[in-house]
Design a protein around this nucleic acid. Structure first.
Ligand SMILES: [Mn+2]
Ligand SMILES: [Mn+2]
Ligand SMILES: [Mn+2]
Ligand SMILES: [Mn+2]
Lengths: 218, 218
DNA sequence: TTTATACTTTTGACTAATCAAAAGTATAGG
DNA sequence: CCTATACTTTTGATTAGTCAAAAGTATAAA
């Protein structure tokens, strides 16, 4: 049975290793789902028996083709729902993640495809994440994290790495929304901070906060 | 914890006794939820301990004020979601009940209120059932079942008593949609059938099918 | 008043998911 | 090669929900 718990585990594995390269450790998985390592181990056993992951005990797990396909569809549902909530219902982008976390497990394929049409086959969700297509492929994107950008660069905010509502509201308040043009004014290595010019503000961010904002060349 | 199972039990109790008059028996409740009587008994115990129902062993149960309030809100979510799926996403009215059965447990109040606004505070769902208001009150309605209507009466289809997709599709095919004007042409007591004139058809229904369609004076 | 019947409740077992804590394993450092 | 450390797995218990089947109860009929 593909319960919503199973879907959450598969999605977490996909998000921790988008490209299917490394093995994900039990601890990493447990942490990302806020469960104890023992819970993760027992679910790992279940998923492995169901042929959704491959488990090398004491080393880690990897999604099988079938597991990845399921995971990508959950991600598609999540991101279409998020965009729908923002675009059609006018909800705040900082709140839709939690709502989508539940809805992703119950909306039918038909509803998702109708939302997809209404939204004109969107490619990115409100946080800048790519929306997997119905066939499971992902639109390509090329952004890098703000914390690694050079001074003087003209950039465009393209993705938020953190879905926390407070963080998203903070970002919005300072003009750091998806699509906004920004310039890096100063990188103070001693203060570990970045001074950024947005449309009508100047913000100073610590590097760890900057790491949660991704950008692409403007 | 108000799990979706609890919500389903409360909703079932409300629908089996809208006016809070009679006591609902364990067997009735079990049947309406497709669970065994033993399962119903054990959930009844849980709900009674939580103060959501009152249980007179071997006689039946009744929603408490708090239980009824919760149930009405689940019904509100269900019916707003149904109408939203039909009106905004263009889904078939015969399919939205099952979808809403799941969504009613996960959509937040904020989403429901936004749908309500978008739908301009609707009072009836796609099957003609009243949508409870946010304060828990119900819009009044006065329909009676088609099987009890008199020959010659000019009527208007106002509510479907059966949510089964096949039945709803059958009704639609013969012009028996909510709001349609119809006339009863003949009531054949021997054949136990009703001949009905719709906009551009004449349909013959058995009385038990007619009992699933409610009407009001045109 | 006894008995048959229909219904309800109890009992015992099972599944999914979780946690705390004990036991086991991999490996880097000495 | 041995051991300390960090991590993983196992064990045992718990909670929500379910079912099948046994036991109990209410009541109408005899
Ligand atoms: Mn999200
Ligand atoms: Mn989720
Ligand atoms: Mn319905
Ligand atoms: Mn439901």
């Amino acid at each position: 049975m593909i319960t919503s718990t199973v879907e959450n585990y598969l999605k977490a594995l996909f998000l921790l290793d988008q490209h299917g390269e490394k093995e994900v450790s039990t601890g990493e998985l447990a942490k990302s789902l806020s469960v104890t390592p023992g819970s993760a181990t027992s679910m790992i056993k279940t998923l492995a028996e169901a042929g959704l992951i491959e488990h090398r005990p004491h080393y880690g797990v990897k999604l099988t083709e079938r597991g990845r396909t399921l995971a990508v569809h959950v991600v598609r549902r999540h991101r279409i729902v998020e965009l729908f909530l923002v675009e059609i219902l006018g909800m705040d982008w900082s709140k839709v993640h939690d709502e989508a976390e539940q809805l992703e497990h119950v909306v039918s394929d038909e509803v998702i495809e109708r939302m997809d049409v209404l939204l004109k086959h969107p490619t990115f969700d409100p946080h800048g994440d790519p929306i997997p297509r119905a066939d499971g492929t992902l639109p390509s994107q090329s952004h890098y994290t703000l914390s690694k950008s050079k001074v003087g660069q003209q950039l465009s905010v393209s993705r938020m790495n953190d879905q926390d509502a407070d963080f998203l509201q903070f970002a919005e308040k300072h003009g750091l929304m998806i699509g906004e043009k920004i310039t890096i004014v100063e990188h103070n290595k001693l203060a570990d901070s970045l001074t950024i010019k947005t449309r009508d503000n100047t913000v100073i961010l610590g590097l760890s906060a900057a790491a949660n904002i991704e950008v692409c060349d403007a």
